[in-house]
C-alpha cells in the first residue's frame, strides 16, 4: 500500500490534530503543561511491526488496547515506556511510587488514562472524517514488544496494516515515550484512505495543508 504525497500529507495533518487533542487531554489530566514532539508516522505490515517498534525501549512496556469498530475498524494501542507509565500514574495520583512498579491501583488509573487518550485521538479521526468510531472496553497489559506483536497477530491470516505514530510527551521535566498503533485490515485501510481523499476534497479550497 503506497499513499500519494497528498494522502500522506493529509494523514500526517490528521494525526497532528489528533495528537494535539491527546496532549491537551493529558495536560488536563495531570494539571501540567505537556510538551509534545511532532509525531512521526510510519506504515508497516502488521507482521513487520517490530521494525518500527524496535526503536522502543527494551523490556516491559505498558500498553492499553481497545478494539474500535464502525466503517473504519481495527485495533488501537497506546504503548508507554514502563518508567514513563509509572511517572504518569505518580502525576495523576499525586503519590510517589518508590517501588517503581505498577500495582493494581496504578494499572487501573493507567487503563482509564489510555481510554481517554485513545478516545481523544481516534475521536478526532471520527469527527474530521465524518465516520462514527465505536470502542471496546480498554484493557491494560504489561509485556515485551515481542510478546505484544505476537499477541496482535495471533490467529490472523489476513493482511493487515499498522499505522504507527511515535511521539514523546514531556510532562513536568520527565519524559514519557509513547507509541500509538492502529492496526487495520485491507478493507478498513481502503476505507480510511477513501475518507482521507474526501477530506482532501473538502479542503480543496484551502490547499495549504500545514504540517
Amino acid at each position: 500500500m503506497v499513499l500519494t504525497e497528498r494522502q500522506n500529507d493529509a494523514l500526517t495533518e490528521l494525526i497532528n490534530i489528533a495528537f494535539a487533542r491527546t496532549g491537551a487531554a493529558l495536560s488536563e489530566l495531570t494539571g501540567h503543561r505537556v510538551l509534545l514532539d511532532s509525531p512521526s508516522v510510519a506504515l508497516h505490515l502488521a507482521s513487520e511491526l517490530d521494525k518500527s517498534l524496535s526503536r522502543f525501549v527494551p523490556g516491559e512496556v505498558a500498553w492499553i488496547h481497545q478494539v474500535f469498530h464502525g466503517p473504519v475498524a481495527g485495533d488501537a494501542l497506546l504503548l508507554l515506556n514502563y518508567e514513563g507509565a509509572v511517572h504518569l500514574t505518580e502525576l495523576l495520583t499525586d503519590e510517589s511510587n518508590d517501588s517503581n512498579r505498577l500495582d493494581e491501583s496504578a494499572r487501573e488509573v493507567l487503563t482509564e488514562v489510555g481510554n481517554i487518550l485513545l478516545n481523544a485521538c481516534l475521536g478526532v479521526f471520527g469527527n474530521v472524517l465524518h465516520v462514527h468510531v465505536g470502542f471496546s472496553v480498554p484493557r491494560l497489559r504489561l509485556d515485551t514488544i515481542k510478546d505484544l506483536i505476537a499477541w496482535l497477530n495471533r490467529g490472523r491470516g489476513e493482511l493487515r496494516y499498522a499505522l504507527v505514530v511515535f511521539t514523546r510527551f514531556q510532562i513536568k521535566e520527565s519524559q514519557v515515550n509513547g507509541y500509538l498503533v492502529l492496526v487495520l485490515n485491507m478493507d478498513a485501510f481502503d476505507r480510511l484512505v477513501k475518507e482521507i481523499d474526501e477530506w482532501i476534497e473538502e479542503n480543496n479550497g484551502r490547499q495549504n495543508i500545514n504540517s
Binding site: A25, N115, N119, A120, G123, V124, G126, N127, H132
Partner: peptide, 9 residues
C-alpha cells in the same frame, strides 16, 4: 460522562 469526543456519539 465519556472520553468519546465524537459529535456522532
Amino acid at each position: 460522562v465519556s472520553a468519546d469526543i465524537q459529535n456522532s456519539t
